[in-house]
Structure formats: C-alpha cells, structure tokens
C-alpha cells in the first residue's frame, strides 16, 4: 500500500506556527508518515527543537509514523554535534542527509534523505548493505532512472520515496542568501528568513519569477506536482510519495493526493483542485519528464 508522507519543514516557521501546523496534521491530514527536524540551517534548531518530543508524541498518538531528518550541510561544531546526537537516537526512525550522519549511524537502521544523492542502483545497494532501510531519491531524477532505482531498492526490501509536491530543493550553499539580501552575513542574520514562510522570491530583471531563497537553500519557484504521475510512480515500484510543507493548506493538499491514491477522485479533477489550493504558484513536473524542471509537461493521452 502506497504511503503518503509529509517531508520536513524547510523554512524558518516560528515554534508556534509549527505547533499549530503539526496539531492540524495530526488531527486532519491523511498522511501516513511525517518527517520532523531542521534540515536546512543549524541556527534555527534552538527555536523549535524543545518541542520535538511533544510533536512526535502528538503525531504518533494520531497514528502517524514519525521520522527525524538530519541536517543537509554539516561543517560547524554545532552541526556535527546535532548530527551525532540524532544518529544516537534509538527511536523514532532517522533520515540521514549528510555523509557525516552515515558515519555516526554506522550499521544501525536509517533512512536515506534526498540530499544523500542516491541516484542509482549501485549506490542504493551500497547503502542498503550499510543499514539503510529506505531511500528518498533526489528531486531531479527522471522517470526512467526512478523506475530503475525503485526496482533495485525494492529487490533489496527498501522503501522508495519520491517528492510529488512542493518546491524542489535546487541547491545548498555555505552562504546564507537571505542574510546576504539584507546586507548581513550568516553569523549576524537576525533570522530574517522568518519573514518568508514560503521562501523569498527572486525574479529575473525582466520580471519572470525564477527561484526561491530559503537561507542557505535555493528552491524552485514552481511547486513540483506529480499528481498525474502517481499511477506510473506506483507501478514503477515507488512506495512512498512525499509532500513538502508549503505555506498552503497542506491538509487539503494531502487530502487531494489521498483521494487519488484511493481511486476516489479523477486525476484531472484532483489536479485542478491542487492548482486552486496553490493559488498563484505554478506547478511543474519537468524533472520527472527528463526536461527543464520548471516545465509543466502534459501527460500523454492513454494509448
């Protein structure tokens, strides 16, 4: 049975916003698994990590499987310590996003996050041999590669996850571009990223929206939308579909995907609802179709 998951919040949402968000997810969102934890910026973690145990308890009580994700970039002492602490956890499950986490975790079971660059069957086989139980593929992978990776992972008994909704992570950097845009540096950022709960929009000099800045991360302007492709993903062996939290009604987004998975809603109708939920934000599936990520490729009519 295909699982619907909610990825970790990429943005600097306040502790209160997060508490409200996860309370609603626990009560109302038809997702099976929820990833928590700070993945992007180690400076943000102190704002919300104290709530982590309560959030885990709340979500598990609602029947969700909880996984805590590790930082994508590990360089500073506090980032190394955060990674080591996470790797030492017995439960819940953890998702590793940096090789430092793999080193710390050793052969104990763990999931592989989308920042780990598990692009192919050889790498997935290696990771499975080192204790990986599940792999989330990089968002830029095309359909053929997803199918080949899923087949190999499935044969090894691993779960295979693909992001089907939300902004794609396009890059991370040591530099904070949020701070830079305000003439600050990462060390004196004053957490200005909190002002942009869905990322800071960048547009070209001829006014075309192009990218979003989220601290050290650069994201796609458009939301990935693989709703029309879910049947093929599942047919190709993908076991988990990931929704990334955006500043949209995520409960409603999850409900649309759930209804399609349950066969309770036609894809065309579902996709129209999804577009309405995303208001002015473009939807894209170019990466999946092996073309520019920002593009929206119409599904071919059934043969």
């Amino acid at each position: 049975m295909t699982k619907l998951t909610l990825g970790p919040i990429a943005y600097h949402w306040s502790a209160e916003t997060r508490r409200d968000f996860y309370a609603r997810i626990a009560d109302e969102a038809p997702v099976d698994e929820v990833y928590l934890g700070e993945v992007i910026c180690s400076k943000r973690a102190p704002f919300h990590e104290a709530d982590l145990p309560a959030t885990i308890e709340r979500l598990e009580r609602a029947g969700k499987t909880v996984i805590v994700s590790s930082l994508a970039e590990v360089m500073l002492k506090r980032e190394r310590k955060a990674t080591a602490d996470l790797a030492a956890m017995e439960r819940p499950e953890i998702e590793v996003n940096n090789a430092a986490g793999l080193f710390e975790r050793g052969a104990r079971p763990h999931r592989i996050g989308p920042f780990m660059n598990a692009y192919n069957e050889a790498t997935i086989r290696w990771m499975a041999g080192q204790g990986a139980t599940h792999v989330c593929l990089p968002p830029e992978m095309p359909a053929e590669a997803i199918a080949a990776a899923a087949e190999a992972a499935g044969a090894l008994g691993l779960g295979v996850e693909v992001q089907v909704f939300g902004r794609a992570s396009l890059a991370v950097s040591a530099r904070c571009y949020h701070a830079r845009s305000h003439g600050r540096t990462k060390d004196n950022c004053q957490f200005v990223c909190e002002e942009d709960p869905d990322g800071m929009p960048l547009s070209t000099r001829d006014d075309t929206p192009i990218l979003r800045v989220n601290g050290i991360q650069t994201q796609s302007e458009s939301y990935v939308d693989l709703l029309p492709e879910t049947a093929r993903l599942i047919g190709d062996g993908v076991t988990h579909l990931r929704l990334m939290p955006q500043a949209a009604d995520m409960v409603a987004v999850a409900a649309v995907f759930r209804q399609v998975l349950d066969g309770a809603l036609e894809v065309a109708e579902a996709d129209a609802r999804l577009a309405a939920l995303c208001e002015g934000t473009g939807l894209a599936n170019g990466f999946y179709h092996g073309t520019a990520g920002y593009r929206r490729i119409a599904m071919a009519a059934p043969a």
Binding site: N117, A171, G286, F287
Partner: peptide, 10 residues
C-alpha cells in the same frame, strides 16, 4: 548538490 542548471535547461 546543485540542480539549478537542470531546472532551467533540462
């Protein structure tokens, strides 16, 4: 860890 080029060019 950079897919910027793929996002614009494929």
């Amino acid at each position: 860890r950079c897919s910027l080029t793929n996002y614009l060019t494929g």
